[in-house]
């Protein structure tokens, strides 16, 4: 499958409209040659799962500012499992306290990017962790 573009779904699940970070990440991944579908902020769980299936995505990138990330990711990761989507690389970014990072990783989140992370690092991480 050489030459297949990495396909990414980005957005925010839950009741939090702070989208500054996820827009920057979306654009960075596009500039790195990936195909990115930005779903927007304020997404419902079902919408994100549906989009992942429809787009046959390799990666899901989610952003959080307000909190609730552990509870949301617990539910979302189990929905991915129920839909046989465990192979999708899930990355998370945003205002997340340090002590929550291991909790997110235990749930199956591949990596957590904190505020101030160089955008290039996120793009590099995705390209080197998706098997094409």
């Amino acid at each position: 499958m050489t030459g297949k573009k990495i396909k990414v779904i980005t957005g925010k699940i839950g009741l939090d409209d702070h989208y500054r970070g996820i827009i920057s990440v979306t654009e960075t991944l596009r500039n790195a040659g990936m195909e990115v579908v930005y779903m927007g902020a304020g997404q419902r769980f079902d919408g994100m799962v549906k989009a992942t299936i429809q787009e046959d995505a390799d990666v899901i990138g989610l952003s959080f500012l307000c909190g609730g990330h552990v509870e949301i990711m617990r539910r979302f990761m189990s929905m991915l499992k129920d839909n046989n989507l465990d192979h999708v690389l899930v990355i998370v970014g945003g205002v997340i306290p340090d002590q929550d990072i291991p909790k997110l990783k235990d749930l199956g989140v591949a990596e957590v990017f904190l505020p101030g992370s160089p955008l290039k690092d996120i793009a590099d991480y995705v390209s080197s962790n998706v098997e094409n």
């Binding site: 009741l15 939090d16 304020g42 769980f45 307000c66 909190g67 609730g68 552990v70």
Partner: peptide
């Protein structure tokens, strides 16, 4: 206000889980 209040969700519905009283 927190997310559930802004979006018009009741606090005991599933979508509000983990989001009560955060950011508002």
């Amino acid at each position: 206000m927190d997310g559930p209040t802004m979006y018009g969700l009741e606090p005991d519905q599933p979508m509000a889980e983990g989001q009560i009283g955060v950011c508002g």
